[in-house]
């Protein structure tokens, strides 16, 4: 699998030109608040709830009819080591973006860790098939453009449920757009481009089964429960990034 990288710098440049240059200094982290009970009820911004609920129901149906059977075939036809290798290849590409975003957040050490992972896994790990960097103690990072925007002071904006792609916010949808614009796969011929994106989607969804089952079995109102978990997770990633953890 060879990915054309020739458009990458251009795409990156365009993405950041679109953003403008409002790189605010990250705000001072809020002092560690007392645990949950002392916090005010978190304000959830969901002005499009009726529409979101509609898309949410569509996604549930899409999962039942398409994603779940494909996931089933994927996990049953391919043995675990093969699936892990597939995940590692996508993860290796993802590490590039995690590194870029750590850099944009001013977390140079972490970015160095991420890029070392890419170099090691691409060479010693045979093109990313094996995650040897983790075995060497270089832990996989976390983060994306949405987190970076959050660190720069961009609020989440309204909560959005995107068709097929799932839960998001306005900020994270912009982040996703930046990722797509800067992803070399976007600039491949349509068939390889969609196949690779689809393969990653199926792989990621197959690794999330445990979480999805947990949400289904625990929630009283699945829409509301999912929204709360997602927004909490994004907040946690951003405040950890702001505090330099």
């Amino acid at each position: 699998m060879t990915l054309s990288l020739k458009h990458l710098p251009l795409a990156l440049l365009v993405s950041f030109a679109l953003l403008g240059a409002p790189v605010q200094a990250a705000k001072k982290p809020a002092p560690a608040t007392a645990a949950a009970q002392a916090e005010p009820e978190p304000a959830i911004l969901d002005p499009f709830e009726p529409l979101n609920r509609g898309v949410f129901m569509f996604n549930e149906a899409f999962d039942a009819v398409i994603t779940t059977p494909v996931k089933f075939l994927y996990t049953n036809l391919l043995p675990e080591p093969v699936r892990r290798g597939i995940g590692n290849v996508f993860g290796n590409l993802d590490d590039v973006y995690i590194g870029v975003n750590h850099g944009l957040q001013g977390r140079g050490n972490l970015a160095g860790n991420d890029f070392s992972r890419v170099l090691i896994n691409t060479s010693l790990g045979l093109g990313g098939l094996f995650d040897v960097a983790s075995d060497m103690g270089l832990a996989k990072g976390k983060g994306d453009y949405g987190v970076t925007l959050g660190v720069w002071g961009v609020g989440p904006g309204p909560y959005l449920v995107l068709p097929v792609l799932g839960v998001s916010t306005l900020r994270d949808t912009v982040g996703r757009g930046l990722r797509i614009a800067s992803d070399p796969r976007t600039y491949l011929e349509p068939i390889p481009s969609y196949s690779l994106t689809g393969a990653e989607y199926v792989h990621v969804r197959s690794t999330n089964s445990a979480t999805e089952d947990l949400i289904s079995s625990s929630s009283l109102d699945k829409y509301r429960f999912t929204r709360s978990l997602f927004l909490q997770r994004r907040d946690a990633l951003i405040s950890a990034a702001k505090q330099g953890n």
Partner: peptide, 22 residues
């Protein structure tokens, strides 16, 4: 223990959102 946060997610906080609506 009165709260557990996994990767920054508190189930209790998620239920609070559900209970408030109910």
């Amino acid at each position: 223990v009165y709260d557990v946060q996994v990767e920054g997610i508190s189930l209790v906080a998620a239920y609070r959102d559900e209970f408030t609506a109910l």
